[in-house]
Computed example of a mutant assay.
Amino acid sequence: MSESPITPDARRRPDDASPGASTASRPKGEPRFPDGPRPDPAGSHFERRIRSFQPRRSRVTQGQSDALRRLWPKWGLDIDGQRPLDLAELFGADVPVVLEIGFGMGEATAQMAAEDPGTGILAVDVHTPGQGNLLNLAERGGLANIRVANGDAIILLREMLAPDSLSGLRVYFPDPWPKKRHHKRRLIQPEFLTLAASRLAPGAVLHCATDWEEYAEVMLEVLTAHPDFENTVPDGGYAPRPAFRPLTRFEGQGLDKGHVVNDLLFRRVPHSAP
């Protein structure tokens, strides 16, 4: 997920995925979805940094392919870093917008959008089957408050979003990069938090969730130490899972196996004028 981390729900095929779907041949060099998400939308315009996500190549079902072809021009956008993004134009004037980085197959995103239709959800990922699946879910549910973004969320935050423009930020089950030599690829680090804080409106909440306990401890440490955020839990520590974050099937299976899922909800601190 561009700066979209890989969510656990993205690691498994949805129940209706058929192994032979979307295998029609096309001329060599012709893009799979001419009007759909591009493989590398930012191209060489920006420096190549360490990425916190790992693009995955997996089969796109016929339903996902159809959704990408029909709905991407309407509800999708590429993160090219070449222009500012007008959230009012995307979602409507005065609509609060939450950025979700890494949505997997999109089931939880669609459920949250359905339960809170007055909030726009800008959902970022690089997983093509997940993009198609979320577009499909949005159409089937009549969810006009979802937009699907393809590419690196860091470029989106840094180059395309205005200061104080977001009403919230969600990072659910990011790739934990468990090997020590890969810890530098983890998304939740001080530099990222500084960038995120600059795009969050004062009082907006950054909500993280992970089933990797060691990563949860690191998240809690760096968030607690960051001057732009304060814990919404009065005594510090992890928060109970809020009712608005759906319990996914993958998460439920992990809980049945004894995995511990930790939620962290930190508020963007309003700074006093100098």
Rank of each mutant, 00 (worst) to 15 (best):
T61S: 09
I79V: 14
E214I: 10
E89G: 10
K257Q: 13
V124S: 08
E213A: 13
P270M: 01
P227V: 11
R38Y: 10
H182V: 09
A204V: 00
L137I: 09
R241M: 09
H207M: 02
P240Q: 13
Y172C: 04
E139P: 03
L161T: 08
R13V: 14
A67T: 03
Q54G: 04
L157M: 14
V233K: 04
S165P: 06
L137G: 03
L135A: 05
S22N: 13
H207G: 01
I146Y: 03
V60S: 00
V95C: 10
L200D: 01
R38H: 14
I79T: 10
A17W: 09
R57V: 15
P31W: 13
R26G: 12
H183L: 09
N262V: 02
G106V: 10
G254H: 15
P8W: 03
G20Y: 05
P73K: 09
A239V: 00
A93T: 13
A201W: 01
P27I: 13
F266V: 09
K74C: 06
A42Y: 07
L264D: 02
A273I: 03
L264R: 01
W75L: 10
D116C: 11
I121K: 03
V218S: 14
L156C: 10
I79Y: 04
L187I: 10
G151N: 06
Y172N: 08
F266C: 02
A42R: 14
A239F: 03
H127M: 02
H259N: 15
Q189M: 09
R140H: 11
R199G: 01
P5M: 13
P5G: 15
P234T: 11
M112V: 12
K184C: 08
Y172L: 13
R186N: 12
P27H: 15
A67N: 03
L206S: 00
V222T: 07
D228N: 05
L220N: 03
E100V: 05
H226V: 00
P129E: 05
H226E: 07
F250E: 12
L195G: 08
Q189Y: 00
D15R: 14
R185I: 11
A108N: 01
L265F: 01
E107T: 15
L77R: 02
A216V: 03
A67W: 05
S22I: 00
D164N: 06
R241H: 05
D9V: 12
A21M: 11
S65G: 15
G236L: 06
T23E: 10
D66L: 13
G104T: 03
E30F: 12
R49W: 06
T61R: 00
V218G: 07
K184W: 09
F53W: 15
W75N: 08
G102E: 02
M160P: 08
P117G: 10
G142S: 06
T232H: 12
C208H: 05
H127V: 04
E230P: 01
V98T: 12
G254A: 13
F103P: 03
H207D: 02
P227C: 05
E3T: 11
L156S: 12
L206W: 00
A204N: 00
E213D: 14
I155N: 06
D94A: 15
L166C: 06
C208M: 04
